[in-house]
Write a protein that binds this DNA or RNA. Structure first.
Lengths: 144, 144
DNA sequence: AAAGAGGGTTGCATGATGCAACTCTATGGG
DNA sequence: CCCATAGAGTTGCATCATGCAACCCTCTTT
């Protein structure tokens, strides 16, 4: 019995999870965002089994989220980089991080913040309506 | 070999995925957001195996994301509702939906949109810095 | 008395994960 | 020349998670 695919439903949430919803996948993407690009470094950073990491990287490359490119020949060595499609996952990681800071981490823990690389100022992410700049309220919205 | 827990790393993304990162979990939450609250309705809407749905609902209740409450006695019947912690997942679902619309669905498909329940106006979600209202740019941000 | 409806549970077969050991290419000593 | 090390995976095996279908239990309706 194959694990059921979520693709082909037409629901954008399901289609997305079909691509990045497997165990470890988003954490691999998170680490690549942090600048970790090589197999061994990812494996050590995540503590993931090597065969699973290999499978995830293959799938992410096949999905067009990561790109595998040589950074040395002789001996052949590869690194993984985000494509535009992969960088577009940034808002997903940010909202997951926000929720984790607010609801999953113990209250007294030092939260992970997002800071402007130039000014060092802390950035507080917020989801708004692009047209009006007002925050989204789930109770006042429907899907269509 | 138990599937490795992602908890206890201190990373808010990992802690979040440890709670909602399993197969089907976020789709259950999505359906509850859409107003589907009962076991059989969820099962039919998702096409998920009944034993797995039961397990996911138990876990979501244990995590404080859903609340199980009787909507009838004699015969005893239950429904699942979002808690505040669960409603806080809305931005996660919205960013997943946006990414799916942009990158996972075929270009010609009718996208799922977010509309204002009162005015019917289409809402375009955007992640900004709460302080300045400027969109977040992954290249100019660091984690700290 | 029989047939749903709602909300699950149980057993079984198969897939996905975790772990450790092993491979393969190439470079750097001694 | 021979061995050790590094990087990037692959292979085998054991165990967990998922999928499916059938079943259970409590009412209510016909």
């Amino acid at each position: 019995m194959q694990r059921k695919s979520l693709a082909g439903t037409g629901c954008p949430v399901a289609e997305t999870l079909d691509v990045i919803g497997e165990w470890w996948t988003l954490l691999v993407v998170r680490d690549v965002f942090r600048g970790i690009r090589r197999f061994d470094a990812l494996q050590e950073s995540l503590g993931i089994a090597r065969n699973i990491l290999a499978r995830r990287l293959r799938a992410l490359v096949a999905a067009g989220i990561l790109e595998k490119r040589p950074y040395a020949e002789r001996p052949p060595r590869y690194e993984y980089r985000l494509t535009e499609k992969g960088r577009a996952l940034f808002p997903v990681l940010v909202t997951l991080m926000s929720w984790g800071n607010a609801w999953a981490l113990p209250a007294e823990s030092r939260k992970v913040r997002l800071v402007d690389a130039e000014t060092g100022r802390t950035v507080e992410p917020l989801l708004v309506d692009a047209a009006t700049g007002t925050p989204l309220d789930p109770r006042k919205l429907r899907l269509a």
